[in-house]
Design a protein around this nucleic acid. Structure first.
Length: 196
DNA sequence: GAAATTTGACCATA
DNA sequence: TATGGTCAAATTTC
């Protein structure tokens, strides 16, 4: 069912299609944005490539690949790559890559533990990349870096992105923190503080 | 109009 | 050079 390798940076699992919509995958708790699709040799179905929706703002490098199985079209093999540095689901998941304890599995932060205010600010701080701006075109920045550090970016360079992929504002962060999908990773933290 | 998807081109690598 | 992964303009959906 699950096969981890590469020290946990990638993992593969098989997931059955959603009941009632065999073309859909069950929600895995993250929000993904498709960025590519390829036909794979000797596979009947194309492979789809997704990255974290909030990559632009959080710099979240998590990705996944979805491959429909040849012999079982209603089962998908999902390969997760990279760690999430964001969290947009109401589902309580480990979100703090705690440097102090070395523990990766911090568990359900919101409900079971009450990180100090310091931890909270540290957490929030870690969410803000150094170059946060109200108009943070992280893609362009990345492209600049790529151009400086590798030869990868001498393909056609669009003068302006046309505003399509461009920005994630602070409002986006606020949305994720306080309103996203009816729940938020910090809800528990703040309710805890309010109660005391 | 903003955000997500589609899709062919581009790129790295084996 | 064949294959898999990514980019980004065009298109679609919300």
């Amino acid at each position: 069912e699950e096969d981890s390798k590469d020290g946990g940076r990638t993992s593969t699992r098989r997931v059955a299609a959603v009941e009632g919509n065999l073309d859909a995958l069950p929600d895995d708790g993250y929000t993904w944005r498709k960025y590519g699709q390829k036909n794979i040799l000797h596979s009947r179905f194309p492979r789809s490539y997704y990255r974290c929706t909030h990559k632009n703002f959080y710099g979240c490098e998590a990705k996944k690949q979805v491959q429909r199985l040849d012999d079982d079209p209603y089962t998908y093999e999902i390969t997760y790559c990279g760690d999430h540095s964001c969290r947009t689901s109401p589902t309580p998941y480990p979100i703090i890559d705690d440097a102090g304890t070395g523990g990766r599995e911090v568990g359900s932060v919101a409900q079971t533990q009450h990180p100090s205010a310091v931890s909270i600010s540290a957490l929030v701080g870690s969410w803000f990349p150094a170059n946060v701006d109200t108009r943070n075109d992280e893609k362009s920045l990345a492209r600049v870096h790529a151009g400086e550090t590798s030869g990868a970016a001498h393909r056609k360079v669009s003068p302006l992105p046309g505003g399509r992929d461009a920005d994630c504002s602070v409002a986006d962060l606020a949305d994720v923190m306080f309103n996203s999908r009816g729940g938020c990773i910090l809800d528990g933290l703040f309710s805890y503080k309010q109660q005391n």
